[in-house]
Simulated scan of single mutants.
Amino acid sequence: MSRSFGDDYPICVACGVQYPLSVAASAASATAHCFICEDERQYVGYAGQQWTSLGELRLQGHTVEIREEIPGLWGIATSPNFAIGQRALLVPGDDGNVLWDSTTYIDDAAVARVTELGGISVIALSHPHYYSSMVEWSRAFGDAPIYVHERDAQWIRRNDNVVLWSGDTHEVLPGITLINAGVHFAGGTVMHWRDGVDGSGALFAGDIFTVVADRRWVGFMYSYPNLIPEHPVTIRKAVDLVRTFPFGSLYGAWWNRIITSDAHDAVIRSARRYFEHIGAPLDGMHL
């Protein structure tokens, strides 16, 4: 029997975030606004605000691509590419899998495949641009809790099963810890996996620390599409927070945007290079 998803819930075409049904009527008359896209970190498309839904995406032939990013770590993405185009990651742990970030499209085939891979015990989000259909994924896996930092609570469009956490760090499963880096958004979060695939530790960064085209480095931005740099004080705090967590690899928000070795040093030297180019003092950076 086919699973029931929220096929009629409106989804912003630009960012891929699913909205409550209360938006649906106004979306049809083009009077609804995407709160997330109207923020200065994102944008409304040149054709104006546009909406779709899971039902429409299914009719258009969208599916969920699930494949190993590296052996032992599975990526999940809407295919063909949609909205921002991020891929989520299914991170294994002794007490269950964590879905790191989310993706917009979901269907029965995706749920079946993820179930074969061990299911989802916890969902953790880096920032609002990747909230997408997080509630649908949660409901498909027994109402798995969705962890969002409380500093980003204002951006949540559907709050079913959302757990707001506070402070600098929070362990969601043994050995898997959320870190409030505060880059990009006040609640901008990265996730540390103590063991990593190879035992050297891993950091899941979304685009809080974004893996750039030259995959020896990461970048720090308040807005990527609008090219607004992040504040030096914010970056300094973020680097100090992750400094105490060992990690050999780092996983960005898109397929193949990964740093496979010496990732801890890559974050620190990337911060040093950023400070040098914007003319910010290196005092207190321990770089």
Rank of each mutant, 00 (worst) to 15 (best):
3 R>F: 08
6 G>W: 15
7 D>R: 10
7 D>W: 13
9 Y>K: 14
14 A>N: 13
15 C>L: 12
19 Y>P: 01
23 V>Q: 12
25 A>V: 15
27 A>H: 01
37 C>Y: 11
38 E>L: 15
45 G>E: 15
46 Y>R: 15
47 A>Y: 15
48 G>N: 12
49 Q>T: 15
51 W>A: 02
53 S>R: 07
58 R>K: 14
63 T>S: 14
65 E>G: 11
66 I>G: 01
68 E>Y: 14
68 E>V: 14
68 E>C: 06
70 I>C: 04
78 T>Q: 09
82 F>S: 03
83 A>S: 07
84 I>P: 00
86 Q>M: 11
96 G>F: 05
98 V>Q: 06
99 L>E: 00
104 T>H: 05
105 Y>D: 09
107 D>R: 03
112 A>G: 01
116 E>A: 06
116 E>Q: 14
118 G>Y: 13
122 V>A: 02
126 S>Q: 12
128 P>Y: 02
129 H>R: 08
131 Y>K: 04
134 M>S: 02
136 E>S: 02
139 R>H: 07
142 G>F: 07
145 P>T: 04
154 Q>L: 11
157 R>I: 06
159 N>K: 14
159 N>C: 14
162 V>L: 14
169 T>M: 07
169 T>L: 13
171 E>T: 12
174 P>S: 11
180 N>Q: 06
185 F>H: 10
188 G>F: 07
193 W>D: 08
203 L>P: 05
204 F>G: 02
205 A>T: 15
205 A>P: 10
207 D>C: 03
208 I>V: 09
208 I>M: 04
215 R>I: 01
221 M>W: 04
221 M>A: 02
221 M>D: 10
229 P>R: 05
235 I>P: 00
237 K>A: 01
239 V>S: 00
243 R>W: 03
250 L>T: 07
251 Y>R: 01
252 G>C: 07
261 S>D: 15
261 S>R: 10
265 D>P: 10
266 A>H: 07
274 Y>P: 00
277 H>K: 10
279 G>H: 13
282 L>H: 09
